[in-house]
Design a protein around this nucleic acid. Structure first.
Lengths: 172, 172
DNA sequence: GTGACTGCAAAGTCTTTGCACGCGG
DNA sequence: CCGCGTGCAAAGACTTTGCAGTCAC
């Protein structure tokens, strides 16, 4: 059985830092100490994360007053604009994941543990394209969340919390 | 070419109001004038909407002080809990759509006009199930957003705004 | 009559913005 | 040195909550 938790990066020619530097240069923007810190922190992890989690990882730097909250938010937006990250939303907050150097994938969302995991499915890509063609819709990408209960939670007898908050996708 | 904009309700035995009344009764809750107003307003429209849009439709009632903002929010949550609505998020806000008496479907999201439309694809349902089985994941449902440009926007030469905000899904 | 519901105002969360200073190129 | 970037504080957008009066049952 394939493990959905282990997508590996695809090989890319330039490092995220290089890509970002070029992005900044093209726009007459600057590479700063803060931006470098944030990129380092992000691209040494392989996760879905939100600004707060990133801030937690940067906590030490924040304590040392090396990065501030607004700068983290601003940089995250820049990284999305640069195509390095993708932004989603879960539970009303923005959540980010790798885009550059990371394979296209879909998500499994477990209602037992609220974990987001990933899987790849070429068939899914094809089906999206086929459906879109039917509706004369030019596809730029897609977001799929399969919602349910993971094996671990089922084994633990953990059932979804009451449907007070039904899972639902979010575009931004 | 099928029109994605025209899903029609499926026939159901009980009206949304009846379902909600039963839901309330079972929980020792009460059917109030406000809740009736909100349900009426919602189930005479066929849309995706958020609390503010609903509030706008209820504006007259609000002006007359017949419903308040917190009550709208509270009732929307109740309707989700009752299985009448589904909640998603777009752009950082909760967005609702029909659940009860409405067929299962997926979404096309146009980056040109930010319109959300719907389509049905049995193949998609099957594929989700098949993929989930592979990962030993018990499926409760899924959310799919195909992101791109609709025919109308393409014809109008409208391209997506710059990737400042990449579309991304949102679970809640 | 009892206790759930409402409206109001206020608080909470997450995110963005205005502004003066600091620093990259 | 020019002007972009940062940090601070404050504002903003959306949603939730505490509380006292009101209304459904």
């Amino acid at each position: 059985m394939p493990d959905p938790f282990q997508l590996r990066r695809v090989r890319v020619e330039r490092s995220p830092l290089e890509v970002f530097e070029q992005f900044l240069r093209r726009r007459g923007k600057r590479m700063t100490r803060q931006r470098r810190l944030i990129i380092d922190q992000i691209f040494t992890h392989h996760d879905h994360f939100d600004a707060d989690e990133l801030l937690a990882h940067l906590q030490e730097m924040i304590n040392k007053r090396l990065v501030s909250r607004p700068t983290v938010y601003r940089t995250l937006s820049d990284l999305v604009a640069a195509g390095l990250l993708r932004r989603m939303s879960i539970g009303g907050r923005s959540v980010y994941e790798y885009q550059y150097g990371y394979p296209s994938h879909d998500h499994l969302f477990c209602q037992g543990c609220n974990q987001l995991s990933e899987f790849q499915s070429p068939a899914m890509e094809k089906l999206c394209d086929r459906v879109a063609r039917q509706y004369d819709f030019q596809v730029l990408g897609h977001r799929l969340f399969v919602i349910g209960i993971c094996a671990r939670c089922r084994a633990a007898g953990r059932t979804p919390e009451e449907q007070t908050e039904a899972p639902g996708p979010f575009l931004r």
